[in-house]
């Protein structure tokens, strides 16, 4: 592998402490979005059951336990 390293362009940024912290924040945000789609019943979205009901069919077809 080392001999190809010089030919192959760098495809990802260097891993720094700052990048890892940003990545952790992004992961938390992405999990929050997944939670809103898959499990939230108004506690986080503050929309009552509206968003929960709106995304009902998506939950079933994505394979998440619904009701």
């Amino acid at each position: 592998m080392p001999h190809t390293q010089t030919v192959r362009p760098i495809s990802t940024p260097a891993i720094s402490r700052r990048l890892l912290l940003t990545a952790l924040t992004v992961v938390a945000l992405m999990l929050l979005i997944s939670y809103l789609v898959a499990f939230d019943q108004g506690a986080v979205s503050r929309s009552g059951m509206y968003l929960h009901e709106l995304m009902h069919d998506g939950r079933h077809l994505l394979g998440v336990p619904c009701h």
Partner: peptide, 8 residues
């Protein structure tokens, strides 16, 4: 809403 769910 299905599209909202799968899109998100």
């Amino acid at each position: 809403g299905l599209f909202l769910a799968t899109g998100l």
